[in-house]
Design a protein around this nucleic acid. Structure first.
Ligand code: MG
Ligand code: MG
Length: 145
RNA sequence: ACAU
DNA sequence: TCATGT
């Protein structure tokens, strides 16, 4: 199915980054309609896919919290990462090759992400950002050469 | 191959 | 050109 959707004008774009892979990295979330940076996180060492995964999960929690506390409904979370989206769907990042044992804070963060996913009765929508047709996701860090 |  | 992943 080669359906091409319209480029979204609402929702939250999340993107992960790594300076080296593995390397220092993190994620951020951007309000697509305004360009406002809504949340950001950095850590000393991780992989591209772990950063993308944790970013999506944080975005899901953020959207839920904004809705419940402030009645603000951000809509859909977008990610350009096939891998991270598959990990969110399965509620597990066990496919990672990265040994988190040297990074207990990261290990704990991943555990909490999976816990959040497994305990949630419902989650906000999350969809693939179609970079080919829409250009770079608005949350991108612009680190690629 | 596809997505990063 | 290398690494992370399905
Ligand atoms: Mg990305
Ligand atoms: Mg990017």
């Amino acid at each position: 199915m080669n359906e091409i959707k319209e480029k979204p004008i609402n929702g939250v774009a999340v993107d992960g980054y790594c300076k080296g892979n593995p390397g220092p990295g993190g994620y951020r979330g951007v309000d697509i309609s305004t360009g406002e940076i809504l949340f950001e996180w950095h850590t000393e060492n991780c992989t591209n896919n772990l950063a993308e995964f944790i970013g999506i999960v944080h975005g899901l929690g953020f959207i839920k919290e904004q809705s419940k506390k402030f009645g603000k409904n951000y809509g859909i979370i977008y990610s350009d990462s096939e891998i991270a989206i598959s990990w969110v769907k399965s509620k597990s990042s066990s496919g990672t090759k990265f040994n988190v044992d040297k990074y207990p804070l990261l290990k704990q963060r991943i555990f909490k992400c999976e816990m959040f996913l497994s305990e949630s009765k419902s989650l906000p929508r999350y969809e693939k950002w179609d970079t080919k047709n829409w250009g770079e996701i608005p949350a991108d860090f612009g680190n690629k050469k």
